[in-house]
Design a protein around this nucleic acid. Structure first.
Lengths: 340, 340
DNA sequence: GAAATCTACGAAAACCCTTTCGAAAAGGTA
DNA sequence: TACCTTTTCGAAAGGGTTTTCGTAGATTTC
């Protein structure tokens, strides 16, 4: 550990004294403000450098009324979706010289309230609330004195601004790709049907099929977002409906399970059976045999967008309201198109 | 979005004025300090509640000389290891009413310096530096005016305090478990040999084997930490050394690949071949066929410990120095012991 | 030489809170 | 009534910075 215990941090006053000028002159010299002679400026600069002076952001924020900080309030750090969103947001904020307070409510409403109070107490300039599912979540309310943007999980209050991936479009995209690959007998295996994500993707898929005058083969199969379920479901599906030529999976994990079962049952992918996943979880998708075509929700971009909205709001720009559905992206790999 | 634009945050002065008392009295009433009559206290409390007053943490910190914040400086948010460490640290700090600044250097030393300056400017009370590998990383230096703890990646300066998982013990643990399962002909497939983690685990494994009078079968195989490599390596290995009865894998991803190839080649796990992974990445381990025995580095615990050390240092307790190797844990699943 | 114009700097207020210390008011005792 | 004790409250300082405004000195202009 590094510690200069008891060593009070060096203040602007220290610099000024050492340079033989007043505090205000020192401040102006360091901030290129007001009238300071070049000689004085250089001298102050040199001393500040020598003493490793860093201005106290708190004192600064106290005056400015702005802290240059934002709160990132996550409902649950665990899980695959938080990290990219976090990265996108942190990246965008970092570029704007804003620091991020990370708060994890761990799925607990009480803890969320607690963290919210702390963030407000720290006078953050804005807040991003990141939920763990795309289902609507309770709004923090309209009484919050700073701008709030909801990411991934939209707020249930339409007056809030929410950014969430467009699962409906993702479902469409997946099916349209399978159709473009010449598939006509498509089944759907997904996860927990209580997730809005599951329902939205299914709805998008059905819409795309309907436009082509088709329907899903069999009923969509719901259970868990796991590889195990993907395996079990695929085994069942291929037994009941051996005629299918494609499976649209609700997640890459499920798709991995489907690939596994298909191989066990002697089906070759993609020739005999095309498989498309969802989430584009690279570790899973690129290590599958064959590599897995998937839908990418552009989560890092989503986090970035949320940050930019907060920026705008801080600058007094009206950022609008309502739930915005951000575009998703098809990533084509070998599980739907034979490798050249 | 929620925004009361232009609405200045309510200050203690506002509360005091509304309650008809002085600022100092209001402060004392809210903080249970000094002598305030019960009636006054109740009145101030009520008004504060009504106005949704939250004390300005900056102004408070300015006085106290402590901000109640720490910096979490990660070298790279991506990857599987950051999140649990983050969670552990955030959790421990949250319990201590400390807020966390999250900074992601994205593997860039310049950006790291930049973030470090910002953290110091914000007068954080301490810093945790989280690296992405267990290889030693450059120290931030001894000149930093707040305590620093290095997590996962140890500092290259022995005067710093570093907490890192005990990969050597992990290697031992894996082999000892395989030996306890009656295996004697054990091979090793790992990832990038330039990683200290790979070398340390191997060294631990060899030590445990040596104590049993055994050696690895064949040379340890190094390449990438991927499922693909696990598959390729296993195929090669089982062809060259069909006599092996166990494989110690450097990661769960590799182990998944090994399981895959073993199945393809008609080997049954665990009867015919035991497989043990590393990292205990639950999503991979519990969805494997059979489920994967693995070594868990207790990363959440590591993050937690790092936070506790920072706490101690803030409280003026000497937290010591040097690299501390934290214990790892064996998680037994079906890939080494047949299910009952 | 006096007045006007610049230039460079410093004093002080403001930001919001906590804490110390002194003062006033209320109550009790001789 | 005079004095003492206890209780309750407020004034003010302090923390580090930015910013406004005033002033002293230097320089120019007539």
């Amino acid at each position: 550990m590094s510690d200069t215990t008891g060593a009070r941090a060096v203040t602007l006053g220290d610099v000024a004294a050492r340079a033989g000028v007043s505090i205000s002159t020192a401040s102006k010299a360091l901030n290129d403000r007001g009238d300071v002679s070049a000689a004085t400026r250089a001298k102050v600069r040199a001393i500040a450098e020598e003493l490793a002076f860093t201005p106290n952001a708190m004192a600064r924020g106290l005056l400015a009324g702005r802290t240059g900080t934002v709160g990132l309030l996550t409902s649950d750090l665990e899980g695959r979706f938080m990290l990219p969103i976090l990265m996108g947001a942190e990246d965008a904020f970092g570029a704007g010289r804003i620091n991020v307070f990370l708060c994890d409510a761990r799925g607990d409403a009480i803890r969320e309230q607690h963290h919210l109070r702390e963030l407000l107490s720290r006078r953050v300039d804005g807040i991003i609330v990141v939920g763990r599912q795309t289902d609507a979540r309770p709004s923090l309310g309209q009484e919050i004195p700073v701008p709030v943007v909801y990411a991934y999980a939209p707020s249930d209050d339409p007056r809030d601004l929410s950014l969430t991936p467009d699962n409906y479009a993702g479902g469409r995209l997946a099916i349209e790709h399978l159709l473009a690959c010449g598939r006509r007998r498509i089944a759907h295996i997904s996860g927990d049907p209580s997730y809005a994500a599951a329902q939205d993707r299914l709805a998008g898929a059905r819409a795309a099929l309907g436009e082509a005058g088709l329907e899903l083969v069999g009923e969509p199969m719901f259970s868990e977002w796991t590889e195990h379920w993907g395996r079990d479901a695929a085994a069942l599906l291929l037994q009941r409906h051996p005629e299918i030529d494609a499976v649209f999976c609700g997640s890459d994990q499920i798709a991995r399970g489907v690939l596994d079962s298909a191989r066990d049952l002697g089906r070759t992918v993609p020739d005999d059976l095309a498989v498309i996943g969802y989430d584009n979880w690279e570790v899973l998708a690129t290590n599958a045999r064959p590599e897995l075509t998937s839908i990418d929700a552009n989560l890092q971009q989503l986090g970035r967008q949320a940050a930019l909205r907060v920026f705008d709001a801080i600058d007094g720009i009206d950022i609008g309201e309502g739930a915005h559905h951000l575009p998703v992206r098809l990533v084509i790999r070998g599980s739907t198109i034979a490798r050249r």
